[in-house]
């Protein structure tokens, strides 16, 4: 037994969960969704073990390379999903959401991602790294759910307009998107911006240097601030809000992947 076996078991559990969720989607049998949830939850537990294992083995937080950070992102996404499913019963979002998680896991296990825990370069040896990455990714996991429910909103809303009845109403989806963002926004602010600035100040002596990754985090944050204000002050709801939420998550994804591969900067490791 080692970390990569645990990772593999987790991956398989998520795939089984997705399988049940899709079967629920097509057969509408509630028990399938329940099984999906149980497997996703089981995957979460094994995944937690895998992350702890890796932390103990390498002696540092598991987000120092792309493999580790993808695995952690997948973990926090499932965690966020379990929380939201528990509170608001959004099982219809389950299949789509698990697709994202499986994509993350597949990307993490692709041969392109170096897996060995490399020794930490000096700048990464800080507990702010722990706080910065974990809280940011947890916040983004909630944005991911808002992304899925916003897309589902758009689909459901156009179905409803054509007179097709749906189980999960468009209104409910809209309100779940908002709630996810209301949870994700403070987390993202704390992890991505506040902890990021503290760490940068400790490591480089400048809390903000307009490095591309910093700038794109700020852009993501602005987009969600836009979401909140258009909604609360100008009363936007539904379609327009959904578009902003989708755009916000895409911007978060770009911050996470795009900046590393397309733009150069200080954050070249994770």
């Amino acid at each position: 037994m080692n970390e990569s076996t645990l990772f593999l078991i987790t991956f398989i559990l998520y795939i089984i969960a997705a399988f049940f969720y899709f079967s629920f989607l097509f057969t509408r049998r509630e028990d399938r969704a329940r099984f999906g949830f149980i497997f996703a939850f089981g995957g979460l537990l094994i995944h937690t073990l895998a992350l702890i294992w890796r932390t103990v083995e390498s002696g540092h937080a598991p987000f120092t390379n792309m493999y580790e950070s993808l695995s952690f992102f997948a973990w926090s996404s499932i965690l966020a999903y379990v929380i939201i499913e528990f509170k608001y019963k959004i099982r219809k979002a389950g299949p789509y959401f698990l697709l994202i998680v499986i994509a993350l896991m597949a990307l993490a296990s692709s041969p392109l991602m170096p897996k060995e825990a490399a020794p930490l370069v000096p700048a990464l040896q800080s507990y702010w790294l722990w706080l910065h990455v974990s809280v940011t990714l947890l916040g983004e996991a909630f944005f991911a759910i808002a992304f899925i429910t916003s897309i589902m909103y758009l689909v459901t809303e156009s179905k409803n307009r054509r007179g097709v009845k749906t189980g999960l109403t468009a209104e409910k989806l809209d309100s779940i998107s908002y709630r996810c963002i209301a949870i994700g926004f403070p987390l993202f602010t704390l992890g991505g911006l506040v902890f990021g600035m503290i760490w940068a100040y400790k490591a480089w002596g400048a809390y903000w240097s307009w490095d591309p990754k910093e700038t794109w985090s700020l852009i993501t944050w602005f987009v969600f601030a836009l979401y909140l204000h258009t909604r609360i002050v100008m009363g936007w709801k539904g379609r327009r809000s959904a578009y902003v939420a989708i755009f916000g998550f895409l911007s978060a994804l770009f911050t996470y992947f795009g900046v590393n591969y397309l733009l150069a900067g200080l954050h070249s490791y994770a």
Binding site: T215, I219, F222, A225, H229, T230, M234, L263
Partner: peptide
Amino acid sequence: SVKLAIFLLIFITAASALGTL
């Protein structure tokens, strides 16, 4: 006005993105 705020947010966002390109 919040309208001005929205306009400024969009503009600052776009400008920030331009600076990374």
